[in-house]
Design a binder for these strands. Structure first.
Lengths: 135, 135
DNA sequence: GTCTCTGCAAAGCATTTGCAACTGC
DNA sequence: GCAGTTGCAAATGCTTTGCAGAGAC
């Protein structure tokens, strides 16, 4: 799992260091913009573009997580019944997976430590049969 | 599960009918823009805005699925270890869930009918303890 | 000194919205 | 006839990118 990282060598800059420190400090899962506001308290001259660039780079390096597997564009599915999707990392298409929903998952989730779970989404990524074959 | 729908009365228009028909026909999980191109073959005068509005409405009615639980903004997490998130439907914050990763899930996924699964994301929605209390 | 990184601003792109005209019911 | 819908175009908002200068090594 988590085999998506393509490491790229990078320099340690003041900006990157502070971005990582502040992101590690908060538990609020900030957006790029929110983190920008936080970081600016320590480094008022930093630009939003730098925050975006670093978050992207750090995600690729596996240092942080981007809470997002949807691409930029939203996709729609005519079926409303529960089923799972996978996004092929190569051809970028989204497929319905030929598997049964995990009923165990649905049953055990109702109440966890005060959280009321009413819905979930389970999405996979990897290679579709076509791209897997032609590797 | 799937308790998110807030039904709203709606008229049956030519546009909505064709959008639903075409979306049901394809298995490609089209984006709004892709569906727009498909629908335009039957209804050349339809506008992209109408497609967006109908997809949004149909999603709320539970007729179709939007493959997206991330909000418009991407969010970042300083931790890189596997853990699960939940989005509170009321306060819209994202929380780390106090639960162990499903190891069973990770083990059984490697290969499903030719698909090579290398990663997955499991995300929940519902009410956080705070919003749950103050209901 | 070199090559990466940054700040700034403009561009890009998907999506949303205002508005007047249109159309189910 | 009225309220929901549409087409059009402009606006919005997040994110990315080009570029020249700054900084890490």
């Amino acid at each position: 799992m988590n085999t998506d990282s393509e490491a790229k060598i990078s320099r340690e800059t003041k900006q990157r260091k502070i971005i990582m420190e502040e992101l590690a400090k908060v538990s609020s899962h900030p957006t790029a913009d929110e983190l920008y506001k936080i970081v600016r308290k320590r480094l008022p001259s930093i630009s939003l573009g730098t925050v975006y660039r670093n978050l992207e780079l750090l995600t690729k390096l596996g240092e942080i997580q981007k809470l997002d597997i949807c691409g930029a564009k939203k996709r729609f599915d005519g079926k409303s019944l529960r089923h799972y999707h996978m996004r092929c990392k190569k051809c970028l298409k989204v497929y319905d997976l030929p598997m049964q929903p995990f009923s165990a998952l649905e049953k055990t989730l109702k109440n966890i430590d005060g959280y009321l779970i009413t819905n979930y989404r389970l999405e996979f990524s990897g290679l579709c049969p076509n791209c897997n074959k032609s590797r």
